Amino acid sequence: MALLKAVSYLESRSEVDKNRIGMAGSSWGGFFTTLMVGIDSRLKVGSCLYGTGNLQLGNAWWDGNSKNGREPPSAAERARWHNTLDPAWRLPTKKTPIAWFTGTNDQFYFLSGVMQTYDMAAGAKHLTLVPNWDHALPQVIHDESVMAWLDEHLQEKRRFPRVSPVEVKNDQGRLIARWKFAGDVEQADLIASYGEPGNWRGRYWHSFAATIEGGDCRAELPAGTLPCLVSGSVVSASGLRSSTRLARVDSQALGVTASIPVPAYDGCQEWGGFEAGQIAYLDRHHRGGQTRWVPRVSDDAIEGKHSAILEPGQTALPPILSTATVPHRFTCSLKADSPVEVIVQLGGEQRSFRIGTSWTEVQL
């Protein structure tokens, strides 16, 4: 009711054009923006940073780190939520433009819910997916993009490129992804995550550069024995990113032979080198309300420019991204001012290492 009254108040103001009222929100604000677009036709546009609908498909409060001891809802309770309280269920009845801007690994609003909510929207819609980011986004997307979508529909300033769905086909034994776009585009990429849907917070997303020719994008997708989810994106000169909805790809079904389940990757690559961009990644998440380790750095590094300083006591590393069902190996290099015993723990496994004054590689 408070939000409905807020729109009524804006309409009552003489300086407000009632035909140019929109709504934007972050996290729960995105949840309520999705809700209001489905309820209140007086809104001309909605722009959602993180928050979404279809929470019955998974969310932090029912299925993740914010359960606080609560039992997850039953299937019947989730169905009741979906058909009564969920903010997305009215979207098919409205033509109001709406956009969602999110990281692929958002721990609060799972990507499965974003995808289904996007599919339900009946009006003009937009999607921006940023691979391997949780409940935080780079500054240019966090600030500029959300407002740019409002400008596009309230001030008639078209800024976002439009994209067609991505398609992946067998092209002479190789998996080739193609999608089209309209608008001013400077670069394009394909993101892919191997394994069946699930493990939304922890799954790793590969990024593959795409070529642009006219209004067409093309990227090769490495084949894996595991199926994968893919999305194509284009980026404008001003940094505005437009993404396709996810598509599922099965190499075997397309007749492409694969010898490995997933291409090799570093599940710590977003932060594990402790260079300036990686520290910024940690800091953006920390500022976004997620307590993250943002280390002091040292110029004494085994590779690159920096290493992280581990303070005495216990240090909880940021999430290490992975692929379900596939064995992984954690590797790091350690050194100390004087010999010390270091315990490395990963899940239920831990090992003790004697670390000296030279760089020592340890694995788990």
Results as ranks from 00 to 15, higher is better:
Val342Gly: 09
Asp134Val: 06
Gly103Leu: 08
Arg292Thr: 08
Arg218His: 00
Pro312Trp: 13
Ala88Asp: 05
Phe274Tyr: 15
Gln350Gly: 00
Thr102Gln: 11
Arg241Gln: 10
Pro327Leu: 06
Ser322His: 13
Ser298Asn: 08
Asp143Leu: 05
Gly289Lys: 11
Asp151Ile: 01
Ala124Leu: 09
Gly224Gln: 12
Ala253Asn: 09
Leu150Tyr: 06
Met120Ala: 13
Leu190Thr: 05
Phe160Asn: 06
Trp81Arg: 12
Phe330Tyr: 15
Ser12Gly: 15
Leu55Asn: 03
Gly69Lys: 07
Ala223Gln: 04
Ser8Leu: 10
Ala301Asn: 01
Ala24Val: 14
Ile176Leu: 13
Pro295Thr: 07
Thr357Pro: 03
Gln269Gly: 03
Val262Arg: 02
Phe330Cys: 12
Ile176Cys: 05
Lys5Phe: 14
Gly239Asp: 06
Ser298Trp: 14
Gln269His: 11
Ile21Pro: 06
Ala99Thr: 04
Thr331Pro: 00
Leu85His: 12
Arg13Lys: 15
Met147Ser: 08
Thr325Arg: 15
Arg90His: 13
Asp151Trp: 14
Leu4Gly: 09
Thr291His: 03
Arg178Lys: 13
Asp40Gly: 04
Ile260Asn: 08
Gly173Thr: 05
Asn170Tyr: 08
Thr52Cys: 10
Thr315Cys: 06
Leu254Thr: 04
Asn65Val: 13
Lys94Met: 14
Ala253Cys: 04
Pro197Arg: 14
Val230Arg: 01
Phe160Leu: 10
Val7Tyr: 10
Ala324Val: 15
Leu190Ser: 03
Pro222Asp: 02
Val163Lys: 00
Glu311Arg: 13
Gly53Leu: 07
Arg162Ile: 02
Pro318Cys: 06
Leu35Pro: 00
Arg296Ala: 13
Glu144Met: 08
Phe110Arg: 00
Gly202Met: 10
Thr225Gln: 06
Leu346Val: 07
Phe160Val: 11
Leu226Glu: 07
Gly304Thr: 07
Glu275Met: 04
Ala136Thr: 04
His142Asn: 13
Ile343Ser: 11
Thr315Asn: 11
Asp143Thr: 11
Arg178Pro: 00
Asp266Pro: 01
Ile302Asp: 14
Pro295Ala: 08
Ser193Asp: 04
Ser233Asn: 12
Asn19Met: 10
Leu150Lys: 03
Gln139Gly: 06
Gly183Arg: 02
Arg158Gly: 11
Tyr118Arg: 02
Leu49Cys: 02
Thr244Phe: 02
Val45Lys: 01
Cys228Thr: 07
Leu3Arg: 14
Val234Lys: 01
Val235His: 00
Ile355Lys: 03
Gly304Asn: 09
Ala79Gly: 04
Gly214His: 04
Val297Gln: 12
Lys335Gln: 10
Gly289Asp: 07
Gly202Pro: 02
Asp300Val: 11
Arg20Thr: 12
Arg284Met: 14
Ser41His: 08
Pro327Asn: 13
Val344His: 12
Gln56Met: 02
His206Pro: 04
Ser333Pro: 00
Leu226Ala: 05
Thr325Tyr: 12
Trp81Pro: 01
Pro222Cys: 01
Thr291Arg: 13
Tyr281Trp: 15
Pro227Glu: 03
Ala336Val: 02
Thr84Glu: 15
Cys217Pro: 00
Trp133Thr: 11
Val146His: 08
Ser74Gly: 07
Lys44Leu: 03
Thr225Cys: 09
Ser41Glu: 15
